[in-house]
Design a protein around this nucleic acid. Structure first.
Lengths: 133, 133
DNA sequence: GTGATTGCAAACTATTTGCAAGAGA
DNA sequence: TCTCTTGCAAATAGTTTGCAATCAC
């Protein structure tokens, strides 16, 4: 589906690109509203979605909207399925090594921490890809 | 506030620890319900929250519930404020280096990608900490 | 013209909260 | 006993969707 060049779309992208910060949809809505007062929040959501599918905008969010919980507290690492959001543990030496490095780096920069997740697609989603009903 | 040892709390933690996977609150609710049929979803949410504050459970989620968008698509890196969720860019050579390593690693493991975010607290939240109204 | 897009309102999903009743120390 | 916790229902927050009108190509 090709995107047509509507006023709303143009302004949304233009205003987003102007910003140094990384607004939420409704923050951007408030900004865009100064130029197109009657625009609706749904339009902003729809366009951000389409633009990010088209690679013109970056969506800063992990897959899956629900929080997930882990009963194991000791440090270990996660792979999240890029399509369904399921999370599994990963025990790869190099992954562990990168995390060690990040621990050190974060300490050095005086930051609170970091969040690293690898993304893949889980078995179930891969099966679905092969035989989509 | 110390946590009292209620049946619900005990079973929630017990069932979560049994699992290899990392359930969402409602997935866990369904499991716990087999043992305490009248338990409510709100209780599961409340306990997961308390347990994760107490460090007995890990919450696998980034701060901030809203999606954020970025007008710059070229690869660059983010720091998210651990308390308000605001996102800023970071241009630190070592951070860039770690990301390069991750690119290579992900490629090698044949995965889709990764998501790395540093966490800190932003100016505004730091100020608030100092003089909480 | 016709398919994409809009604004609006309503729907939806995940999560949180108020409250009165009940359990734990 | 006195606080913490529960179940329930209602509220909230963020986001998505159906629809008829309108716009872009």
């Amino acid at each position: 589906m090709k995107l047509s060049n509507t006023l709303q779309r143009r302004i949304i992208l233009e205003e987003l690109r102007k910003l140094e910060c990384h607004p939420t949809a409704d923050e951007l809505y408030e900004i865009v509203r100064k130029r197109i007062p009657q625009i609706s929040l749904a339009t902003v959501y729809r366009n951000l979605e389409l633009l990010s599918e088209g690679g013109q905008v970056l969506k800063l969010q992990q897959t899956g909207k629900q929080k997930r919980f882990d009963g194991r507290v000791e440090s270990h690492y996660h792979v999240r399925c890029a399509s369904c959001g399921r999370v599994a543990d990963i025990w790869d030496d190099e992954v562990i090594a990168v995390n060690r490095q990040l621990d050190v780096l974060v300490e050095k920069l005086g930051m609170e921490g970091y969040m690293l997740e690898l993304n893949d697609r889980c078995e179930k989603c891969r099966e679905k890809d092969e035989k989509p009903e």
